[in-house]
Design a protein around this nucleic acid. Structure first.
Lengths: 156, 156
DNA sequence: CCGGATCCGTTTCGATACTG
DNA sequence: CAGTATCGAAACGGATCCGG
C-alpha cells in the first residue's frame, strides 16, 4: 500500500513550505480546475475530460485530494453507482488561486487565439468565485446547474 | 452574463487549459517559490534547500522553466563558475499566484505552529510583491539583498 | 569548489483489461 | 458507472564523475 509520507521531520523549522502535498503533480490542479470552472463532479466527467487521464490515476488523485481535505465524495442518493465529488471549504478557498493561475497561463500563451473563456472570467472574477462558492458549498440539493461552466462543452 | 457566444473551439481544442506546462510537477513551483520568497538564484542554493532535490532533477527543472520562459540563466560576470537564475517578467507575474497559494496552504495547515513568515507576507502582500519585482526585474546590478526572505530559517 | 551529466536501481505513471 | 489489476514505459533520486 501506500505508506509513509514525510520521510523525515526535516529540521525543526520548515521555513516556508508550500502546501502542494496534493497539488504537486500533473493532474490534481486540473481536476480542481474542472470542478471550479466546468462544474465537474463525477468520475466519468473527469475521465472524459480533454486531458484523457487514465482511470487508475484519476482514482488515485481523487483519493489524494480527499486525503488532503480538498474534496469529498458522497454517493448519489438517487443512484447508488454514482458518486458526487464536491469541493470542501478548503477546496473552495483554493478557487481564487487556481483562477489566477488560469489567467496567468492564458495571458502568456502563444496560441493566437487567447481563451475568451478565461478572459471573460478574469473580467468577472468576483462573480465567478461567488458562483463557485454557491455551487459547492455544503448545502444539500445543489442541482449542479451549468452556468459559465458549459463552455468547453458537452455537445454530446 | 454568464455565457455569451464565445467561439466554438469547444472540445477540439483545449477549452480552459491551465498552463502548467512546467508547473505540473513536484519541484517547479518550489523552485519558483524559493526564488520569490527566499531570493534564491544559484544552483547551489536550490540544491541545498530543505527539500533536497537531486542535482539531475534540479538541472532538468531549471531547464524546463527556462524553456517555459519563466526564468533565465546568465553566467555571473565576476565568477565564471556561477550562474544566476532570474525570474522573467512572466515569472514575476506568477508571484501573486504563488504567494496566494502559500497563504492558502498555511491557512489550512495542521501544524500548531502557523508559519509566521507567511502570515507576515500575507499582511504585507503588496509590499512583498513589489519587492519581488524590484529584485528580479531586468535591471543590472541587483545585489540580491535579503529582505523578508531570511525569516524562516536556515540556522546553518 | 560550482553547475551539471551519466549511470543505475527504485518508484510512479499510464494504457488497457477487467470487476462489482 | 466507479473504480482495480496488470504490466511495460517513463520519471525519479542517489551516487558518482566531469569540465571549468
Amino acid at each position: 500500500m501506500k505508506r509513509g509520507k514525510l520521510k523525515s521531520q526535516q529540521r525543526s523549522g520548515c521555513p516556508v513550505s508550500i502546501s502542494l502535498e496534493a497539488l504537486g503533480d500533473r493532474w490534481s490542479l486540473l481536476i480542481i480546475r474542472d470542478m471550479m470552472v466546468r462544474a465537474f463532479h463525477t468520475f466519468k466527467q473527469f475521465r472524459e475530460s480533454d486531458e484523457k487521464i487514465a482511470t487508475n490515476i484519476l482514482a488515485d488523485r481523487l483519493q489524494k485530494l480527499m486525503a488532503a481535505g480538498i474534496i469529498t465524495a458522497e454517493p448519489e442518493k438517487s443512484d447508488g453507482r454514482k458518486v458526487n465529488y464536491r469541493l470542501t471549504e478548503k477546496g473552495i478557498d483554493l478557487a481564487p488561486v487556481v483562477l489566477d493561475l488560469l489567467i496567468w497561463g492564458t495571458r502568456y500563451e502563444e496560441t493566437g487565439a487567447p481563451n475568451a473563456v478565461v478572459e471573460k472570467m478574469a473580467a468577472n472574477r468576483d462573480e465567478v468565485l461567488a458562483e463557485v462558492r454557491r455551487r459547492w458549498q455544503e448545502r444539500d440539493p445543489v442541482p449542479f446547474l451549468p452556468s459559465f461552466s458549459n463552455v468547453g462543452g458537452q455537445s454530446k
